[in-house]
């Protein structure tokens, strides 16, 4: 395998951006990520995005997005209808083939244009589940309920996760939800999606993120502190949530094993936990110890721009390695009902 590193990252978020269209939203993020990479746009070998037509309400969202990417002269380019963390995976594969030495990855989506929780329902079985319209939050709440029923997790455990995330988000300019709050205060607020409170549910967020990665021979030249990708893997679970053991995340565990995450030793883990209980499930599946700081950015509970949010987890770990704050971190991305599909990426400094 070739050594590949993240060398640049940029993001933008908003609660509800009604000024800019997608292209206007993405363009500055891509420009900043490219500028930060130290590589000229047309020297970047591969371009790939992650986006979703159902977020924007019509087909071919990524075609518009390409207008923000500076794709002339023609570029080697691809697109996944997935969170852009998987676009990064495809870019990493492209570098492994030897065909290219660097890649620009971007993800974007404006979740606020519609009732996003309702739209995500369409990921479920189109014959027996989707026609009942359980939302993304309803399905997550069922998983939380199953977890509570097992008896090892309590409301307070969730509130502790939510409170810590909200406090940490105060230091993150891209968080759209943050507050200095403790678990007791959150427990005093109403249960809105039993057994979940609003504070257990990631906020609807508009956003875009871009990352540049490069093979060692390029990364060393342009980046003082690259974040080396020491392992990356992703796995998927069965779609039928009843057939899964909802008190764990088998696909996260497997992706973690394959990526080498179970050796531990992480200063930071940025987990794409869209619900408070997701964090508990993910920490257990990945065997993260108490020494690992979980979601110091505030995580997805602070800002969760779908299609970019998983990529942002990788970006947040890179940012801390690049700043010299930490030596080794883990990033995680998810999509699909009740943590169906999971990606784990391990990053290290020199």
């Amino acid at each position: 395998m070739r050594d590949v590193a993240v060398i640049s990252f940029a993001q933008e978020t908003a609660v509800k951006d009604r000024e800019r269209n997608e292209v206007e939203f993405i363009s500055p993020v891509v420009r900043d990520a490219v500028a930060g990479s130290g590589i000229a746009r047309h020297d970047i070998g591969f371009t790939i995005s992650g986006s979703c037509d159902y977020l924007s309400g019509g087909p071919f969202t990524f075609v518009q997005g390409l207008d923000a990417a500076g794709a002339w002269p023609p570029v080697k380019e691809s697109h996944v209808e997935m969170d852009a963390a998987w676009a990064l995976y495809e870019a990493w594969v492209a570098i492994q083939t030897g065909d290219v030495d660097s890649a620009l990855i971007y993800g974007f989506g404006k979740s606020s244009l519609t009732d996003i929780h309702e739209v995500i329902t369409l990921q479920t079985d189109p014959y027996t589940v989707a026609p009942l319209w359980p939302s993304m939050v309803d399905l997550a709440a069922l998983q939380a309920s199953a977890l509570f029923a097992e008896g090892d997790v309590t409301e307070r455990d969730l509130a502790e996760v939510a409170a810590r995330s909200r406090r940490d988000a105060c230091a993150n300019p891209f968080a759209v939800v943050s507050e200095e709050v403790d678990a007791d205060t959150l427990l005093g607020r109403p249960v809105t999606h039993a057994p979940l409170r609003d504070s257990d549910i990631a906020p609807v967020t508009d956003g875009a993120a871009a990352i540049v990665i490069a093979a060692a021979e390029v990364a060393h030249d342009v980046c003082a502190r690259p974040a080396w990708i020491r392992g990356i893997d992703h796995r998927v679970d069965a779609p039928h949530i009843g057939v899964r053991d909802l008190t764990t995340s088998a696909s996260t565990r497997r992706a973690g094993e394959e990526a080498g995450a179970l050796q531990g030793g992480f200063d930071v883990a940025e987990l794409h936990a869209q619900f408070s209980h997701d964090e508990l499930l993910l920490r257990a599946a990945l065997g993260l110890s108490a020494e690992t700081a979980i979601n110091p950015s505030g995580g997805a509970l602070g800002a969760n721009p779908l299609m970019a949010s998983g990529l942002i987890r990788i970006g947040e770990v890179f940012r801390r390695i690049n700043a010299g704050e930490i030596g080794r971190g883990l990033a995680h991305a998810t999509q699909g009902p009740c943590l169906q599909q999971n990606l784990v990426c391990i990053l290290e400094g020199e």
């Binding site: 009604r18 269209n21 206007e24 309400g57 519609t114 189109p126």
Partner: peptide
């Protein structure tokens, strides 16, 4: 299977 989704689309600045 009826599927009706509502969106609020903004044109953008330009």
């Amino acid at each position: 299977v009826p599927i009706r989704l509502e969106y609020e689309i903004n044109a953008g600045r330009a």
